[in-house]
Design a protein around this nucleic acid. Structure first.
Lengths: 223, 223
DNA sequence: AAGTTTACCTACCGTCCGGTAGGATTTTGT
DNA sequence: ACAAAATCCTACCGGACGGTAGGTAAACTT
């Protein structure tokens, strides 16, 4: 008889590995207990059901990530430094807990019916976004950010930039993510992409919105 | 006996609906044939297997989306206009073919083992990225974009910005995506987020990279 | 020492899965 | 008119699924 917590964690670890590798529906309870070297009743002794086990992992993944980002933000004063620190912390989390992050992503973008309805993750995603949002709002109030954009738009920008780098890590893991990358991201976020010769002569002139693109489709024309 | 193509498309349509709603592993062949009002052997008459049916949908989703984006780019001359047009086209595609886009996303971020190995989608994702990359390269060569960033960095920026808006549409469909949104995205991409009081006094000073964050974790200590 | 709780097992349940064998019916080619 | 091909059906297969009944043995409690 082992010390309870050990077995429980072994199940969690095996479940994380399998879920991250094969998704929720693609992983069978048998797969997990085999990997954890226990039997099915043992798993059901510690977790109510398959969904409960999954939820435990999702909760941990989001909570730990947010905690690290908050700690990182608290370590710096100025907004750019804060952002770099937060993004670097996230990169570190990704490096150390690749499976957890992969699990978060595939859960967030999984089809609604793929995962049991009782699994909750949306509020945790929003919480994470709102944390970045709070940093941006501070920056706006301090006049460090361009007031011609809303706080939400600005948050979308930095969050999108951050996200695409993390996502790229999963699609093709060619580039690694370190502090240098975080600095480039913040720089790009703040300075923008425009070159010197790109004068603002394209500004507000309501570009001809005449051309309506057709919705050609074989599959969807439906009724 | 129906006219072959009709039945085939009805199966495709039903499959799209179900796959988008429940994912690959979460959708059974029986679900699909029920929704299409046919029987299983009918489905297997038109498609080799479940994976082949899925692949047909994925291919169509990516090809059609890229086609629309390319058409959109060809309609404009200047880079900012091109970008707005492309993004607007993508938004239109999203609006008209929500299920197809949802399918693309959940496939891209699905765990590797969740979907049969024969399903190919990565090259199509890269193709889409490379299309945007080509637009950015043109902009760089024309001096319209900031040469202190690489073409890849700049593409990540606009692509990430674009992506986060599309993804947000799936997580919480509160805001709608129209040409106005596309214009704001391009503006944010080009102008950057920095406010007027944000002088570049944070530039290159290699912010103290002393503090090493701990990798506290209950789950992962492994070995 | 005896009872209770904790930790974990073997063996099994009913259900649903992807896929198929083999045949019926309709359309097409000649 | 008749054969061949195309289209779609009923009925079924072996296997894997999530979950459980019921029991064993060690560890705590008193």
């Amino acid at each position: 008889m082992r010390s309870s917590l050990v077995t429980r964690e072994e199940v969690l670890r095996a479940a994380l590995k399998k879920f991250a590798a094969c998704g929720y529906a693609g992983t069978s309870v048998q797969d997990i207990v085999d990997a954890a070297a226990v039997t099915k009743p043992t798993l059901y002794y510690y977790f109510a059901n398959k969904a409960g086990l999954y939820q435990a992992l999702i909760d941990y993944a989001h909570d730990e990530r947010l905690r690290l980002m908050q700690e990182a933000a608290a370590r710096r004063e100025a907004l750019p430094d804060k952002l770099v620190e937060v993004i670097t912390a996230l990169f570190g989390f990704l490096k150390a807990h690749r499976d957890l992050v992969r699990l978060s992503f595939s859960t967030a973008f999984a089809a609604p019916g793929e995962i049991p309805t009782e699994i909750r993750y949306l509020d945790k995603c929003i919480r994470s976004f709102e944390f970045m949002h709070s940093l941006v709002k501070e920056g706006l109030e301090a006049g460090l950010l361009n007031r011609r954009f809303t706080s939400k738009e600005l948050t979308m920008s930095i969050y999108g930039l951050l996200n695409i780098y993390v996502m790229g890590q999963f699609l093709r893991a060619d580039h690694s993510l370190h502090r240098r990358t975080a600095e480039q991201i913040v720089k790009l976020f703040l300075e923008g992409a425009a070159g010197k010769r790109a004068v603002n002569h394209w500004k507000r002139r309501s570009a001809g919105r005449s051309t309506r693109q057709r919705a050609a489709s074989v599959i969807l024309p439906r009724t």
